[in-house]
Nucleic acid binder design. Structure first.
Lengths: 208, 208
DNA sequence: AACAATTTATCACAGCCGTGATACAAAGGG
DNA sequence: CCCTTTGTATCACGGCTGTGATAAATTGTT
């Protein structure tokens, strides 16, 4: 076989460059040429590893979903078995886990920025539709599982509907992420965390 | 004086055409040429009424802010004096008012779609920054006033911090609007309304 | 009728874009 | 050494963008 180049690694390099462009200049500016420049590659090389713009975009969004999903899974595994723990402790874990979806540091800010740009772009780009849908349903699925576990541990006030609470908490997270990314001058990371904490505590009952 | 053309009316026509393009194809596709076509005007005419792309965009976003703001003000005026009313009734008014910010029908869906597109675009378009900021702070200001009035009417559970609750409710609204506009298949109008209702009721206490 | 201001309509230019086609370099297997 | 495969680089094309410059049509006033 000819040249020995790690194809997958190259693709990841290109996608990383694309993420930097999206975070810095927005998804509109993420053309094959600008991404190639950012990756210090020739546009011909980029086109060698990706069939075209659409495949690059889809692969990039899929990579981001996998990345966030993997980190979440790692966090879940690290928590281990929670059965028998006091409700307050489980609430802490819930906050910790959900915090992964908020732009509380530069790394997560970059991720959420990319996801917001991709999700909004998907509205008018059919090629990204299924991935954007997966993003929305994935978050809901995670939130629902967390609330369910919280419930079985007695960490949920009686009279709350799981369906409604799932949408409520998910929308709260989405809104926090949205504004924290787009308007850091209006909503900073600390306030983000405070609001999430307040909501989860509130779900558990009056006692702080 | 020469030709008799209502300059402001023409500008409004162009802006309405721009909104239609943004809702249909996204803000990226809202070029001078496509907007002129949508308005059934020559690009030369559009450029006669607007100095350039930037002024058109700014004027359009300002128009949208004014439109939503005016409708909100009308709603507030229609409510009249609420002092002395039972807390439950005030909660109803709060829900009614805040529902204006959610895409519960086609008209509001179009508005929210435009605002989401403009707000995300503003992240990388300095010309729109102040208007996007105004959007975010305006919503917060409204939510805060509503919560404050709810509080004085005894419609707020004790132990809630106004600052935090303002951010919480605002983020909830933003998240609902965001997903309802981008993923109507995941979050429909009815669920939107249900969640808002549940949150406001929850702020008032256990009793539904 | 003549004029002037407004409005409408075109043309041209430079700059992006994605992409097809193609040439060239490099590297490992025969 | 040759040859095939892989990677890199470049050119050209059509299409879109905003915008400057300019012409033409329209309309009210004088």
């Amino acid at each position: 076989m000819p040249k020995q180049v790690d194809r997958e690694a190259r693709r990841r390099d290109v996608v990383d460059a694309l993420f930097r462009v999206v975070v810095r200049d927005g998804i509109q500016r993420a053309s094959l040429r600008t991404v190639a420049d950012e990756a210090q590659l020739n546009i011909g090389s980029v086109r060698h590893y990706f069939a075209g713009q659409e495949e690059l975009m889809r692969f990039a969004m899929r990579s981001m979903l996998d990345r966030v999903g993997a980190r979440l899974q790692r966090r879940v595994d690290a928590l281990g078995d929670l059965s028998g723990l006091p409700a307050a402790r489980i609430r802490d874990c819930a906050v910790e886990l959900l915090s992964e979806l908020l732009p509380l540091d530069d790394s997560r800010r970059a991720e959420v920025t990319v996801l917001v740009d991709f999700s909004t772009a998907a509205r008018t780009h059919p090629a990204l539709d299924d991935l954007a849908r997966e993003t929305a349903t994935g978050t809901r699925s995670l939130v629902r599982r967390i609330l369910a576990r919280l419930d079985t541990a007695g960490g949920l006030r009686p009279g709350l509907a799981l369906d409604t609470e799932t949408e409520r908490l998910t929308s709260l997270l989405d809104g926090l992420a949205f504004t924290a990314v787009l308007r850091p001058d209006v909503l900073d990371a600390a306030t983000c965390a405070t609001v999430l904490r307040a909501h989860v505590d509130d779900l558990g009952g009056a006692a702080a």
